[in-house]
Design a binder for these strands. Structure first.
Length: 769
DNA sequence: TAGTTTTAAGTTTTT
DNA sequence: CTTAAAACTA
């Protein structure tokens, strides 16, 4: 079958990969296991379509979920064929933003909209829901965002699936109304609005279907319903669709990802072919074995077997430790030793954790011990007060209707403008097309308030003039004085947009305001602002530059990632499990492998399955060595709590792991272990009774029978019994009569049932959705 | 009103 | 332990 005139870049591909690259004509689903070379397939396919099929690069659209993935894809495709530069490689959201900047006017959206992040949404909602506690506001925000993930509008009957209160429907409707008045969008709108436009504007739909002849989607398992709709709308009869995904790596259910999308792809795209990539080139076989053991416990999966092309290697190591300080020290020791011995470099290592909060301990210790590291994707920078302040000022330059930004900055630093005045302005804005600045300008105010307000208006006007390149006192455009790098109040302005930003920060008084905090609290607010200014200098000082800057900040939170200690190129990676998707490291340490932390204690049913997939994702990042650490106690809210090893260890055959017991500083008086002192399957007997996952003292891992795996009763399933009330399945075991289900009821009582007992006063209760 | 002190509450995961 | 909300004082 091999033809002589095939391009050389096809040669390194295995038969399945090659088949996927050369496939044409019908929709294609590529089921690509971890490390099976899917990025290579996509990038090669792009090059092949351009080079061999004569496809115009501009007619190719490839969508990913993260900017990192999009960038990597673009880079690798370009390496194969430089013409790939012209293809559109974007995240779903950045594609949506691009679409809306051009076509949003058809949905009443001005092209200079700003994207609201979750905090902005909450701020807006708390104005709508005036007297509600913050927690309720947050929940509504969450539900609204979820609704948009599922493409549900306020009037959709299906909305009840998310939040059945009529109150929610009203709030959602009012939120949409306010958002339309303001003229901004939230994350969900970036997907939902384009679909609405494509559905109602035939001419636009035709244009897009005509332009994109090939559409590829990476990480398809993480697409939500709205994103699926978008894909559908973009596809015409002749569009070639190719999606790549792995149901075992679906880890974004909580934000609306539908594994169903991948399971049902062949139904939704009729005649689709499926190609499986099951050869793993990344990890050694013991690593894959451990990863697969856990995810095998899931029921709702297509099922696949990864083969390790790399072959054998050292067993993953399970490390039992005393507490999180020991954990950090263990990591530091392990990493440092390997680098000192010249086995590897810092950058071969990654430390994984479940929650961002866990990074702190590693950061402080690594800093002290001089281990270079970088933290990936912690959002903290943008959550900082001073950063949000500066960004709010910038937003107002572009959109004078931005209520959230206006409320935030009109009286900051304090200018004597209270909530009463602010509300008055906002009410009055209705008469000025929502323009808050115009309203402020024209509204009658007390003398004191008027003075304060004028300073603010002047500030914004000066900023706008810089952006629009208008000189204040002359009629001709101001000439650029880019080289003037002057320092004002500790902020050094540079080129481009940073000139404007510096002026805003200084003239608004923000610089002084935050400087004061630095002085008393020893914070780094000025230097954070400086960093923002530095980032801004890469953008032109124009409306477009400013919009681009704001958009990138909202959509690409990794933009401001900085190395915390040492050199970026060669540093240990500190990262959440979620953020590791698509990455690989020679050596990986999965930390905090404790019940309640990972999996989180409230996980059950489908959500527990998602935790297993997250475990799978984390473990399959490792190429050569994998370590898993678990602590006997962990500090939470400043209190020391006992903890027990993750239930995942019970799902792994004992022989698949090597136990490292040297690291534990064994001086814990209150604990005693039966048998081997470091048996990982010995669970902390001191666990509190209120944790329903913990009643497994000393039970070894057992291989599950087929009957058990297929049993409709699974760990964590909520049940109801006529006599005993509500409860949860806490164990399923084999017996001669079939699987036996053990249930612990909320009353504390435990009972066992044969699994076919259902229908006799014993029934499943669905998880609240 | 602004700025302080006291008290309560809370930690997923992300575009 | 850290942060946000509530309560309090000048």
């Amino acid at each position: 079958m091999r033809e002589k005139d095939q391009p050389s870049y096809l040669e390194p591909l295995n038969p399945e990969q090659r088949e996927a690259v050369l496939h044409t004509g019908k929709p294609l689903l590529i089921l690509a296991g971890a490390g099976s070379g899917k990025t290579r397939v996509i990038t090669t396919k792009i090059a092949w379509l351009i080079g061999e099929q004569g496809m115009d690069p501009r007619s190719i659209l490839a969508v990913t979920f993260t900017n990192k993935a999009a960038r990597e894809m673009a880079e690798r495709a370009r390496l194969i064929d430089a013409r790939a530069e012209g293809a559109m490689l974007r995240t779903f959201h950045s594609f949506g933003a691009w679409f809306l900047r051009r076509n949003g006017n058809l949905a009443g959206l001005d092209s200079s909209f700003v994207i609201y992040d979750d905090d902005d949404v909450i701020a807006l909602l708390s104005n709508i829901m005036e007297n509600s506690p913050k927690a309720e506001v947050k929940q509504c925000a969450h539900h609204i965002s979820r609704a948009k993930d599922y493409f549900l509008s306020p009037d959709d009957p299906q909305l009840a699936r998310i939040d059945s209160r009529k109150k929610f429907r009203e709030i959602y409707a009012r939120y949409e109304e306010r958002m339309a008045q303001i003229g901004n969008v939230d994350f969900g709108d970036l997907i939902k609005k384009p679909v609405e436009i494509l559905r109602t504007q035939d001419e636009v739909a035709r244009r897009f279907r005509d332009r994109f002849k090939v559409i590829m989607v990476d990480e398809y398992q993480d697409a939500n319903v709205a994103q699926f709709q978008l894909l559908k709308e973009l596809c015409g009869d002749r569009t070639y669709v190719c999606v790549v995904g792995d149901d075992d790596q679906s880890i974004y259910r909580f934000r609306g990802a539908e594994v169903k999308n991948i399971l049902e792809f062949p139904d939704k795209f009729i005649g689709a072919d499926i190609i499986r990539l099951e050869r793993n080139y990344r990890s050694t076989s013991p690593i894959l074995q451990v990863a697969a053991s856990v995810v095998d416990y899931n029921r709702g999966r297509l099922g696949k077997t990864l083969r390790a092309e790399k072959g054998d290697g050292p067993l993953p190591v399970l490390v039992y430790l005393q507490n999180q300080d020991d954990e950090a020290n263990y990591c530091a020791d392990k990493i440092e030793k390997s680098v000192k011995k010249k086995e590897t470099k810092w950058s071969s290592w990654a430390v994984l954790y479940r929650t961002n909060a866990q990074s702190l301990g590693f950061e402080t210790l690594f800093l002290r011990r001089g281990i270079p590291y970088r933290v990936v994707g912690s959002l903290k920078f943008y959550e900082r007060e001073e950063i949000k302040d500066a960004l709010a000022l910038l937003s107002l330059l572009v959109n004078p209707r931005d209520e959230v930004a206006f409320r935030r900055m009109i009286n900051k630093p304090a200018r004597g403008i209270g909530p009463v005045t602010v509300d008055k302005i906002i009410d009055a804005a209705e008469n000025y097309g929502g323009d808050l600045l115009e309203a402020t300008l024209n509204l009658e105010l007390a003398k004191k308030a008027r003075n304060s307000v004028e300073t603010f208006l002047k500030l914004i006007k000066d900023g706008k003039n810089l952006i629009d390149n208008i000189s204040d006192n002359e009629d001709k455009p101001a000439k650029k004085k880019n080289k003037s790098v002057k320092k004002r109040d500790g902020i050094i302005g540079g080129e481009g947009l940073s000139v404007c930003l510096t002026q805003l920060i200084v003239d608004s008084g923000l610089a002084d305001y935050h400087k004061a905090d630095d002085d008393v609290a020893g914070s780094n607010r000025i230097s954070n602002l400086q960093e923002l200014v530095n980032a801004a200098s890469n953008y032109p000082q124009s409306r477009e530059g400013l919009l681009q800057f704001l958009e990138n900040i909202e959509l690409d939170r990794s933009m401001m990632d900085k190395q915390e200690n040492g050199d970026v190129q060669n540093a240990v990676t500190l990262i959440t499990f979620h953020n590791t998707k698509g990455l690989e490291f020679k050596r990986v340490i999965m930390t905090g492998m404790e019940q309640g932390v990972f999996p989180r204690e409230d996980k059950k049913g489908d959500e527990l399955e998602e935790e297993r997939r997250l475990f799978y994702v984390g473990a399959t990042r490792a190429m050569d060595e994998l370590y898993l650490t678990t602590c006997a106690q962990r500090r939470m809210y400043g209190k020391i709590m006992p903890s027990s090893p993750s239930m995942f260890f019970r799902e792994i055959d004992e022989d698949f792991l090597q136990i490292d017991d040297r690291a534990a500083g064994w001086s814990m008086p209150s604990r005693s272990f039966a048998g081997r002192s470091f048996n990982p399957y010995n669970f902390n007997s001191g666990m509190s009774e209120n944790n329903s996952y913990t009643a497994y003292p000393g039970r070894p891992a057992v291989k599950k029978s087929a009957a058990l795996i297929n049993c409709e009763w699974q760990y964590g399933q909520r049940v109801f019994h006529d006599d005993h009330g509500y409860g949860a399945v806490i164990d399923v075991k084999d017996s001669e009569d079939g699987p036996v289900v053990r249930v612990r009821f909320d009353s504390g009582k435990e009972t066992r049932f044969l699994s076919d007992y259902q229908g006799r006063g014993f029934e499943k209760v669905s998880d609240d959705w």
